[in-house]
Design a protein around this nucleic acid. Structure first.
Lengths: 178, 178
DNA sequence: CGTAGTCCTGTACGACTGTACAGGACGGCC
DNA sequence: GGCCGTCCTGTACAGTCGTACAGGACTACG
């Protein structure tokens, strides 16, 4: 039914926007419901439980995540290029990916949060290289932070422009080869 | 009395740590109380209301904020140096500064959150320069993100090492002069 | 027409938040 | 000893969270 699928899409769009600007935990079902003109129980009817909202928003990014991890782990230049492209493409949900779910405190095993956290750590390890020293660690984390903020705070700019500008910046931060 | 001041310090230390790793809103008074072996009402007795915890943690950073804004607004090289030093010095509360309170949705006028947000925006404006184009905006936000993540995720490294490594990275991202 | 299924509302629940208030334990001062 | 202020606990409250459940409005199908 088109009406149902339509409300589902509208809920997803509103959730994506609110999650991006307030964070996952700080956005309640009531907030999302108010944004689309429904009650919170209606939102819960379509997405049950709340995690399903995050899961569905992150689904397209998930496919790109595994291709990112499947690429050649040695070439860091290529990794940065792919990473910037990935961040720019999924900038609407980058906060969910890198912070809200990855930085989650508890991380019940088997949950999507745990998978995302290991993904982030794996990316960090490939950036920092084996047995990284202090400066390499700092620069690797700085690179990830630059990625998130660079794409998240410039949502009104065209994606392509963000990607090219961010690629230059990311290359400049990249820790020197160890 | 030393015992009271001591528990105050212990509460502040625990709150600083928990706020850094979970965020301000995601940390309850019960969490802090459990970390120091007290009840949540005891924490509320010393810091009333909860905002006072954040205020007291941010007080030392606040003095540095105004000196940062008081410096010469033209020299961006110098601004970046001072900014990196600032971030490294207050890395334990950098998340509160740049995200938890600055990114707050509501921002009741007169609240510390509003002051912090305008501080962040003012720093951004000085980094990006007057009437910045797309790439300049991207790089300025990327610089701020690199700062936050670079200092927040490397809490176990000596502050000096973080500062020097981050200064190199920040200089590399700095948008070209307009 | 009747019946089944989908979409949504209203109500209610337990868990949790920050806060308010009364009272107890303890030490210093008169 | 009697008194007072500080430090802390226990209880209680209103508010919000995500979720569960019953029932109404509506469409599609027999």
């Amino acid at each position: 039914m088109t009406t149902a699928d339509d409300t589902r899409s509208r809920i997803l769009a509103a959730a994506r926007e609110l999650f991006a600007e307030r964070g996952y935990a700080a956005t309640s079902l009531s907030d999302i419901a108010a944004a689309v003109g429904l009650t919170k129980t209606a939102v819960a009817y379509h997405f049950h439980p709340k995690d399903r909202l995050a899961s569905e928003l992150l689904a397209p990014a998930g496919e790109d995540m595994i291709t990112l991890l499947g690429a050649d782990a040695g070439d860091r230049e290529e990794l940065v290029t792919a990473l910037v492209s990935f961040a720019a493409r999924h900038r609407a949900v980058i906060r969910l990916l890198l912070e809200d779910l990855a930085g989650s405190d508890d991380a019940p095993p088997g949950s999507p949060g745990e998978a995302i956290r290991t993904f982030r750590n794996e990316i960090f390890n490939r950036l920092a290289g084996p047995d990284p020293d202090g400066p390499a660690r700092v620069r690797s984390w700085a690179l990830l932070g630059a990625l998130q903020w660079g794409v998240a705070q410039t949502m009104n700019l065209p994606e392509e422009e963000v990607e090219t500008a961010l690629l230059e910046a990311a290359r400049a931060i990249l820790p020197p080869a160890g």
